[in-house]
Simulated scan of single mutants.
Amino acid sequence: MNSIFNSPFEVSLRVLLILENSNGLLYSSDMLAAIDFMAVYGQDFGISDNNMHGNNLFKYSEFATRRELTKEATRNLVLKDLISVDCGQNGFTYTITTIGIQYCSSLKSDYANCYREMVTKVLNYIEDMSEKKVLNLINEHSIRSLRKGGN
C-alpha cells in the first residue's frame, strides 16, 4: 500500500490551500514549497507557537525533497485544471482556477483549517520579501539549526 504522506498528492492539497489564500498572486513552485515549509514549521520562523508536523531534527533536509514534490504536484494540478500556469519573465508561476477554488471548499478538516490559518500568517510574514529573500531565510534557519545540532 502506498502512503499519501510526503507524496505529490499530499503536497498538491497544500498547494491548493496556499493558492486559495493567495489573493490571485502568482507563485513559482519554489515559492510554493517555501510557503508550505514555513506554514508547517511556523514555530521555527516565529510565526506560530508550535510546528504543525512536530519537531524533528531533520526538518530542513526535507526542504529539498519538498521542492521536488511541489514541482510534481503543480504539474499534476495543472493537468487537472485545478491551477493554471503562466510563463513570464520570472519563469513558470501558478494561480488557482475556479475548479481549484471549488475543490478547496470541500477541504474542511481540522488540519486543513489550521493549515489555512498558518498560510495566512506566512503570507503576511513574507509579504514584502522577494522569493530570493524567502529562500535565503530558510537557508539561514537551516544553517543555524545545523550549528545547534538540528534544533
Rank of each mutant, 00 (worst) to 15 (best):
D49Q: 07
I83L: 10
N124I: 09
G46K: 07
S109G: 11
Y103C: 12
K71P: 04
V85G: 00
D44E: 11
E127V: 09
K132S: 14
N124K: 15
C104N: 12
V122W: 01
Y115T: 05
N23K: 14
Y115E: 02
L135Y: 09
L79H: 13
C114T: 15
R116M: 10
G150D: 09
D128A: 11
N21T: 12
S22M: 03
S109T: 15
G54R: 05
V85R: 13
G88D: 07
F63L: 04
T65Q: 11
E10W: 14
S28Q: 08
D128L: 13
H141E: 11
Y41I: 04
C104F: 06
I83T: 05
K133L: 10
C87N: 15
Y27V: 08
L26S: 08
G24L: 12
T65H: 06
C114D: 14
F37Q: 01
A73F: 06
G42Q: 01
N51G: 08
N151P: 05
L82G: 02
K133E: 15
D81S: 15
K148T: 08
L137H: 07
K133Y: 11
Y60T: 00
G24A: 05
S142Q: 13
D49K: 08
E72S: 13
T95H: 09
R67N: 02
L13H: 06
A112H: 15
S3N: 14
N50D: 09
H141W: 07
N21L: 09
S48I: 00
T93L: 13
R147A: 11
Y125S: 05
A112L: 03
D110V: 10
F5T: 04
A73H: 04
K133I: 12
I18P: 01
E117W: 01
I96F: 07
G91R: 03
N55S: 11
V78Y: 07
A73P: 01
E127P: 04
T98H: 11
R147V: 11
L17P: 01
E127W: 14
L82V: 03
V119D: 02
S28N: 11
E131C: 08
C104E: 02
G24E: 05
S109P: 03
I83A: 01
R144W: 07
L69Q: 07
V85M: 09
Y125T: 10
T93Y: 02
A73M: 10
N124L: 12
R144S: 15
N55E: 14
M52Y: 07
G88Q: 10
M129N: 10
L135R: 10
G100A: 10
T98S: 14
N56M: 01
I18Y: 00
T74K: 03
Y111Q: 03
Y103R: 10
A33I: 05
A33S: 14
F58N: 04
V15G: 01
K148L: 15
F45R: 04
Y60K: 03
M129R: 08
E68G: 12
L79N: 14
I47L: 10
K59T: 05
D36R: 02
L82I: 00
F58Q: 11
L77E: 00
M1H: 10
R144H: 15
V78K: 09
S3R: 12
L137M: 14
F63H: 01
S48Q: 12
L79V: 06
Y115V: 05
L26N: 08
